[in-house]
């Protein structure tokens, strides 16, 4: 049986971001892309599930960056059995969640998985998270903020994190969609030599898909948060800064 993992590449928010002259998108030339960290957790959780059951993990992604191959080969190197890349006239565009979900649904239906896993959220999912959107379009039960899962008799048992360490355990009939916050264990590491080997031995299936009409979210403008309430920046050498911090703490009776 099949478990689908949907993987997306997103701008690396650790890097400095710039806004394009249009004001409605990031300056994509200045962006470096990484796999959405939550998708990495979704892949790990899928691999753990599959290792317990013998399911086949299929990694699926929409190539909006022209760089998705690397992510999919890495997924194959980690243990995914197949990788499918959707290509179309959307490279370099900001694909809305709804548009992405509409592209993914036919592929998912064709694969007939018993589970679909993806990251709980993405840095750019302005029109909502992918997992519940997919679930609505597929008509399957779902849960987000998943921190652990287990396949049991015709169902998947998931732990969903609420807040304050409180969790809700749900049993969803299959097929189901999970938005993964964190896999049961940290995503596995795979050496680059192994990825290279996979690149020689395995191949990514490519599907050219029709571009949906409504691609991007309706943004008026992007802006940086106001500087108001900005911290007072302490400068100097590390030891000068340490002195200043200790002074601050003493002044407030915290030392």
């Amino acid at each position: 049986m099949t478990i689908v993992v949907v993987m997306e590449q997103v701008p690396d928010v650790v890097e400095e971001l710039a806004i394009a002259p249009s004001g409605t998108d990031l300056d994509r030339d200045a962006v470096s892309y990484v796999v959405n960290e939550y998708d990495d957790h979704a892949l790990e959780e899928a691999l753990l599930l599959a290792e317990a059951t013998g399911d086949e993990v299929v990694a699926v992604g929409i190539d909006t960056t022209g760089e998705l191959d690397q992510a999919l080969y890495t997924a194959l190197a980690k243990g995914a059995r197949r990788a499918i890349k959707l290509t179309g006239d959307f490279e370099g565009t900001w694909l809305s969640t709804r548009a992405a979900a509409r592209l993914l649904v036919p592929v998912i239906q064709e694969l007939e998985p018993r589970l679909v896993l993806t990251g709980v959220q993405a840095p750019d999912d302005l029109d909502g998270q992918l997992a519940p959107t997919l679930a609505a379009l597929l008509g399957w039960p779902h849960a987000s903020v998943v921190i652990g899962s287990q396949l049991v008799d015709g169902a998947v048992q998931v732990r969903k994190e609420l807040w304050g360490g409180m969790t809700m355990t749900l049993e969803l009939e299959l097929p189901a969609v999970l938005g993964v916050q964190a896999a049961r264990q940290a995503p596995r590491y795979v050496p680059i030599s192994r990825v290279r080997q996979v690149m020689r031995e395995a191949s990514i299936e490519t599907r050219d898909v029709e571009t949906p009409g409504d691609l991007a979210p309706a943004i008026m403008r992007l802006r940086f948060p106001e500087e108001a309430g900005q911290a007072e920046i302490l400068t100097g050498s590390a030891s000068e800064i340490a002195d200043r911090i200790i002074e601050l703490l003493r002044a407030r009776g915290l030392l």
């Binding site: 971001l17 943004i219 008026m220 403008r221």
Partner: peptide, 15 residues
Amino acid sequence: AQLFGGKILADVRID
């Protein structure tokens, strides 16, 4: 809306 890890804000007109 807060996007990109809180680094960017998006103003969106509600139709």
